[in-house]
Simulated assay, not measured.
Amino acid sequence: MSSKAKPRILHTELVASSRLFRVEQVHLQFSNGVERVYERMQGGNRGAVMVVPMLDEHTVLLVKEYAVGTETYELGFVKGLIDPGESVIEAANRELQEEAGFCAQTLTPLMEVALAPGYFSSKMQILLAQGLNPSKLEGDEPEPLELVPWPIEDLDGLLARPDFNESRAISALFLARKALKLS
């Protein structure tokens, strides 16, 4: 662990906002006296979940949905925001039911990850879902999501797909394989 003192925030200023994000300029002074202005995106402080659902001990369930950032359909895992008052486990099971039509008997937290912590404050909890049973809740997706079962042993085949490239999903896959004690 570093013993360096964190920079002192001299001033923050909101420079842009939308329904999802706030962009702030953060004026910092480092311990050596150097001052800099950084920008960061502040999302809601609710947090988010990503769920790696196991249909059986050898098959992971992926979802394919439209990603406006890349303007393509991307293959990944169930994910979404944690609603106010919801626990991580409750949010994971709700998202699993909304996006994939299953609830889990067991949800195991694997790791909290950050996406570009130099710019974003948001964190995501990754969970492994096992013991799936059919259970559908109405979600907020604009179109039905395509469900794609995939053998978890075929890591190379999944990583070779051009539509499976989100860093959090790749991290989730490796964390799930480690938790399942697969090589």
Rank of each mutant, 00 (worst) to 15 (best):
S2M: 15
S3K: 15
K4F: 07
K6M: 10
K6T: 05
I9V: 15
H11K: 14
H11A: 14
T12C: 10
T12H: 08
T12E: 10
T12S: 15
E13I: 04
E13K: 10
E13V: 03
E13Q: 10
S18D: 10
R19N: 13
R19D: 10
L20P: 02
L20C: 05
F21W: 13
V23K: 05
E24D: 09
Q25K: 14
Q25N: 14
L28S: 01
Q29H: 02
F30L: 04
S31T: 05
S31D: 07
N32H: 05
N32R: 02
N32E: 07
G33K: 02
R36N: 01
R36A: 03
Y38K: 09
Y38R: 12
E39H: 04
E39S: 09
Q42C: 11
G47I: 03
G47M: 05
M50D: 03
V51M: 01
V51N: 02
P53A: 05
P53S: 09
T59A: 07
V60K: 03
L62W: 07
L62P: 08
V63Y: 03
K64I: 11
K64G: 13
A67I: 11
A67P: 02
T70I: 13
E71V: 03
T72S: 06
T72L: 09
K79C: 14
G80C: 01
I82Y: 01
I82D: 03
E86C: 04
S87H: 01
V88D: 03
V88K: 00
E90M: 02
E90F: 00
A91E: 05
A92G: 06
R94I: 07
E95V: 01
E95H: 08
L96K: 00
L96A: 10
L96R: 02
E98H: 04
G101V: 08
F102T: 08
F102E: 03
F102I: 11
C103T: 12
C103Q: 07
A104L: 02
Q105E: 13
L110W: 02
M111N: 15
E112N: 00
P117A: 00
G118T: 12
G118N: 13
Y119N: 06
S121C: 06
S121E: 11
S122Y: 00
K123W: 12
M124P: 00
Q125D: 09
I126Q: 04
Q130I: 04
G131V: 03
G131K: 07
L132V: 04
S135M: 15
L137K: 08
G139Y: 02
E143I: 04
L145S: 10
L145C: 05
L145Q: 14
V148C: 05
P149G: 14
W150N: 12
W150A: 08
P151Y: 04
L158N: 11
A160S: 12
R161K: 13
R161V: 11
R161N: 12
P162V: 13
D163F: 00
N165P: 05
E166A: 14
S167R: 03
A172Y: 01
F174A: 12
L175Q: 12
L175A: 10
A176S: 15
R177M: 15
R177G: 11
K178Y: 15
L180T: 12
L180K: 08
K181W: 07
